[in-house]
Amino acid sequence: MTALRRVTPQLLTLAALVALVTLFFPDFLRIEVVNGRLVGPIMDILKRGAPVGLLAVGMTLVIATRGIDLSVGTTMAITGAVAAWSITQGYGLGGALALALLAGVLAGLWNGTLVAIIGIQPIVATLILMTSGRGIAQLVTEGRILTFSHDGMAFFGSGDLLGIPAPALLWGLTAVAVALLMRRSALGMLIEAVGVNRAASALAGVNATVLLIAVYVASGLCAALAGIVATADIRGADANNAGLWLELDAILAVVIGGNSLLGGRFSIAASVLGALIIQTVDTGILLAGFPSEYNLVIKAGLVLVILVLQSPNLAHHWYALRRAAQARRERAMDTAKETGQ
């Protein structure tokens, strides 16, 4: 019940968006079976939202430690380039996936080392890889779009299992696995402790350094999965455009999910709903016939509203108003009792 209450605002927001889009596009909720596959706008949202959904899972863990990872979009480009290069070099599906995931781990390890051991601020540490990473991806692809033809790899971008798009299954299973790991073990509590106060958690016996490195590695792995999906979808690696600015959508998804940028308590489910809200907005605007530029304005408006609602000053003001209203009610009741006597 507590978990459901935690994501109630996101569920209501998503429901309101779906209702609004349905007014402009009545077939929005329609799902059909074509050649054994489920098709329709909803399925398209689940498929197209996979990269942001995967990035949001890793970003949630990083933000819970009071950090940020600006390099996830670039990591997508690197891992996608490594996957495509591996396929073209004859390493096979297993080798390509292993090397792509390894690239994601190394990217996360680099970020985590800079933050946890060297002590560089997260926004600066991850900005380094964000700036240099596309150059690395271009070196792998030799400055061109590296295409491949491999049905096994393409499955992760355009395949399906029991009619459900493979990307949707991948990010759904990833989110569930990470959420269960965080809440069925002490990891979630330890991450929240580091986010609230790293020094105090270290005094309490928490190995904050290892934990910080681990969350950045997890973010790198999620970015690697997103890169594999994006590369498999177009059957090629585009080092210039793969994952471009998706780190902002991932951060927005976490924020829409109600997770504080100041660290501490977090919810994977809420971040996933945030990613669905973002993709629903994108798809809804296109289906309604509005220019795609509206996405930027709407996303900016969402960020502004959510940050205002999360503002400590607003929360303090709201609390003061409630206390004042309660005090007035108590005085009115006391006055009524005295008058009655």
Results as ranks from 00 to 15, higher is better:
Val178Thr: 05
Val178Ile: 12
Ala179Leu: 05
Ala179Pro: 06
Ala179Glu: 14
Ala179Met: 12
Leu180Gln: 13
Leu180Cys: 12
Leu181Val: 14
Leu181His: 08
Leu181Ser: 13
Arg183Pro: 03
Arg184Asp: 10
Ser185Trp: 00
Ser185Cys: 02
Ala186Met: 11
Ala186Pro: 06
Ala186Phe: 01
Ala186Tyr: 07
Leu187Asn: 10
Leu187Ile: 12
Leu187Gly: 04
Leu187Cys: 06
Gly188Met: 11
Gly188Arg: 07
Met189Arg: 13
Leu190Lys: 14
Leu190Ala: 11
Leu190Trp: 10
Ile191Glu: 01
Ala193Ile: 10
Ala193Pro: 09
Ala193Arg: 09
Ala193Met: 10
Val194Arg: 00
Gly195Cys: 00
Gly195Thr: 00
Val196Glu: 14
Val196Cys: 05
Val196Asn: 13
Val196Thr: 14
Asn197Gly: 04
Asn197Cys: 06
Arg198Ala: 15
Arg198Asn: 11
Ala199Ser: 14
Ala199Asp: 15
Ala199Thr: 11
Ala200Val: 08
Ala200Tyr: 00
Ala200Cys: 03
Ser201Tyr: 00
Ser201His: 00
Ala202Tyr: 10
Ala202Asn: 11
Leu203Gly: 08
Leu203Tyr: 14
Leu203Pro: 00
Leu203Glu: 13
Ala204Leu: 05
Gly205Ile: 03
Val206Glu: 04
Val206Ser: 04
Val206Leu: 05
Val206Asn: 05
Val206Gln: 05
Asn207Val: 09
Ala208Cys: 10
Ala208Val: 15
Ala208His: 04
Ala208Met: 06
Thr209Met: 03
Thr209Trp: 04
Thr209Ile: 06
Thr209Gly: 01
Thr209Val: 08
Thr209His: 03
Val210Leu: 14
Val210Asp: 11
Val210Arg: 14
Val210Ile: 11
Val210Phe: 13
Leu211Ser: 07
Leu211Pro: 02
Leu211Asn: 03
Leu212His: 00
Ile213Val: 15
Ile213Lys: 03
Ala214Cys: 09
Ala214Lys: 03
Ala214Met: 13
Ala214Arg: 03
Val215Phe: 01
Val215Pro: 01
Tyr216Lys: 08
Tyr216His: 15
Val217Ile: 15
Ala218Arg: 00
Ala218Asn: 04
Ala218Val: 05
Ser219Met: 09
Ser219Ile: 06
Gly220Ile: 06
Gly220Leu: 08
Leu221Asn: 05
Leu221Met: 11
Leu221Trp: 02
Leu221Ala: 06
Cys222Lys: 05
Ala223Ile: 10
Ala223Tyr: 06
Ala224Arg: 02
Ala224Tyr: 01
Ala224Lys: 02
Leu225Thr: 07
Leu225Phe: 13
Leu225Asp: 11
Leu225Arg: 05
Ala226Asn: 02
Ala226Thr: 02
Ala226Tyr: 02
Gly227His: 05
Gly227Tyr: 01
Ile228Leu: 15
Ile228Arg: 10
Ile228Gly: 09
Ile228Phe: 12
Ile228Asp: 13
Val229Ile: 03
Val229Pro: 02
Val229Cys: 06
Val229Ala: 07
Val229Gly: 07
Ala230Ser: 14
Ala230Asn: 09
Ala230Val: 12
Ala230Asp: 12
Ala230Cys: 09
Ala230Arg: 07
Thr231Leu: 08
Thr231Phe: 09
